[in-house]
Simulated assay, not measured.
Amino acid sequence: MMDHILQLLQWLVPTGGVGMLLGWLTSTRLRHARVNKEVHDTYKAMYEDVHGQLLQLSEETSELRTLLARLERAITKGSSCRIWATCPIRRELQRTEVEPDLRQLLRQRPRARRDTPTARDHTSGDSDAPPALDLDPP
């Protein structure tokens, strides 16, 4: 009976089988260790990138806060200025977002083409008649 078990084991596990089994187990452990190291290195690189961007944004935020503080100081000093009532900066500061910017309106005004008649052009067939008076002043 013992001989049969030994023969069966020798037939199932040839001489290279044990070595191959040990090699497979160690290679699996090495593969898992390599994968874990790659994941760790990836997270480390991502952390360093995010940390660098966070530092850069922090510097930009501090610069913006400094500029905002300077602007606030200038605005508070403006009220004691002798020309504050007619100052163009005051009008610009009091303008709301829904109120259109006058400069943009002036830029967007369409120009009348020469070949299209305007409201001031004489449209009647009688060329000797005087043009109609515009009752609405500009």
Rank of each mutant, 00 (worst) to 15 (best):
residue 25 L to S: 11
residue 27 S to T: 14
residue 27 S to Y: 02
residue 27 S to F: 06
residue 29 R to H: 06
residue 30 L to C: 01
residue 30 L to F: 02
residue 32 H to Y: 03
residue 34 R to A: 12
residue 34 R to C: 05
residue 34 R to Y: 07
residue 38 E to G: 01
residue 38 E to D: 11
residue 38 E to V: 03
residue 39 V to S: 05
residue 39 V to I: 14
residue 40 H to Y: 10
residue 42 T to I: 01
residue 43 Y to I: 05
residue 44 K to H: 11
residue 47 Y to I: 10
residue 48 E to I: 14
residue 49 D to R: 14
residue 50 V to K: 12
residue 51 H to T: 11
residue 52 G to Y: 10
residue 52 G to P: 00
residue 53 Q to S: 11
residue 54 L to G: 09
residue 56 Q to A: 15
residue 58 S to P: 00
residue 59 E to D: 15
residue 59 E to V: 09
residue 60 E to A: 08
residue 61 T to Q: 06
residue 61 T to D: 04
residue 63 E to H: 04
residue 64 L to F: 05
residue 65 R to L: 11
residue 67 L to N: 10
residue 67 L to R: 13
residue 67 L to I: 02
residue 67 L to V: 02
residue 67 L to E: 07
residue 68 L to D: 08
residue 69 A to Q: 13
residue 70 R to M: 09
residue 71 L to F: 07
residue 72 E to D: 15
residue 72 E to R: 15
residue 73 R to N: 14
residue 74 A to Y: 03
residue 75 I to Y: 06
residue 75 I to Q: 08
residue 76 T to N: 13
residue 76 T to L: 10
residue 78 G to F: 00
residue 78 G to W: 00
residue 79 S to F: 13
residue 80 S to R: 07
residue 80 S to D: 09
residue 80 S to L: 05
residue 81 C to R: 06
residue 81 C to Q: 05
residue 81 C to H: 12
residue 83 I to Q: 08
residue 84 W to P: 00
residue 86 T to N: 09
residue 87 C to W: 02
residue 88 P to L: 04
residue 88 P to H: 06
residue 90 R to Q: 08
residue 91 R to A: 11
